[in-house]
């Protein structure tokens, strides 16, 4: 069974976003990246819009409860772009697949095996 119903997942993601706001405060001038998620049977999929950035300037940091996306934009003006992607319990932030295509970074986080739907 999935560990959360959609409303519960949304609430848990919101809680983790608030809980890890300190990461955002560490970079006071950073611009927020637009991040969206969808839940699937196999895991959680995040989409992050990273415009005007080349992929070499993207750093994805995997932490226990969140994945932090940092991107250095040099044009039109230099800026640090920051996205915090919560990973609720039941998903494994060590098991991720990351793709960058166009201006979208896709981060797929797998469910932990013992929570996977039978």
């Amino acid at each position: 069974m999935p560990p959360y119903d959609p409303a519960g997942l949304e609430s848990e993601i919101g809680r983790l976003e608030r809980s890890y706001a300190a990461i955002r405060r560490e970079s006071p001038g950073a611009h927020d990246l637009a991040c969206r998620w969808i839940a699937e049977a196999s895991g959680l999929r995040w989409y992050v819009i990273v415009a005007d950035v080349v992929e070499a300037d993207i750093d994805v940091e995997l932490l226990r409860e969140v994945i932090v996306v940092r991107a250095d934009r040099t044009w039109p003006e230099p800026a640090l772009l920051l996205g915090i992607l919560p990973v609720p319990g039941g998903f494994d932030p060590g098991q991720v697949v990351i793709r960058f295509s166009g201006e979208t970074l896709e981060v797929r986080v797998r469910r932990e095996p013992d929570r996977r739907a039978s």
């Binding site: 992929e55 070499a56 300037d57 750093d59 994805v60 940091e61 995997l62 990351i98 793709r99």
Partner: peptide, 8 residues
Amino acid sequence: QFFTVTRP
């Protein structure tokens, strides 16, 4: 893909 991934 050429982005960097940081892990503990």
